[in-house]
Amino acid sequence: MTHSEVLVEAETITRFYGKTPAVADVSFMIRRGEVLGFLGPNGAGKTTTMHMLSGNIAPLSGRVLIAGHNMRTEPKAAKAALGYLPEHPPLYRELTVDEYLDYCAALHRIPRRQRRAARERAKARCGLSEVGGRVTANLSKGYQQRVGLAQAIIHEPPVIILDEPTVGLDPIQIREVRSLIRELGQNHAVILSTHILSEVQASCDRVQIINKGRLVLNESIHDLMRRVQSQALIAAFRRGPDMALISGLPGVRAVTIVEENRVRLLHEPDADPTDALVKLSMEQGWGLCEINPEHSSLENIFVELTGEGEPTL
């Protein structure tokens, strides 16, 4: 199987709301077999970008190609290749889940004979098999979200765009949806928009951070994790350590006190001072009782790049 086919291409897409640029000069591409995390604080232009990719609004300039089809000149071919779960699942409240999914299947031109099979497959994948006869208005938020997801994948599109798919789900459902996204990522190109950092860490291959309408980061999750993970250590001691000695260790850039007898070491990416620190502690008799590389540091990058306060986790 080739993992090289480019399925989504956005070239310098721009969109204004009034005079404010909601999205400015954003370019990126996604290949088959990739899950792209689209990360940004609220109001950064995530949803606007998703809307442009799905053909709901047209970019002021630039162009969007879905599976090689230009969204402006061949909208039908482009839209046939994508499934979109918007921020609010687009449910007809008066229809049952089965009726709704059948309608979606028909809109996506699935031949009449295959609709039932397509519907059952989508339901099974999204855990909806038992609620087929229920009216969507009466479903809980989590189930409504899953119906929205089923709608986006019922026609097995090569490109799947998900705008905040785990909002309103309980932790078990979130885990199910994440594993579904990973599974979809095997054969499709998936774009996942979210403001939840752990979600990107859990399910994406590549991450893009958007802030104030501009892309500020585009990196594979692997590189990103390595870059941010190995730069800080947390160490705790029984007796107060000598800060000056720790700062003197090779590769240590800065040392800060987190709380009493607990310090945070920032170090160079390639020089892990763990061994040296353990040795030093032994010699000085500080009683080292805990040492940890700092893990949840995607947050730090996020805060650093967006320059905003605390991100929502």
Partner: peptide, 14 residues
């Protein structure tokens, strides 16, 4: 109002 128009706009329909 119910945001279901998105469904029609994202489907291959003119």
């Amino acid at each position: 109002h119910n945001k279901t128009l998105t469904l029609l706009y994202s489907a291959p329909l003119s």
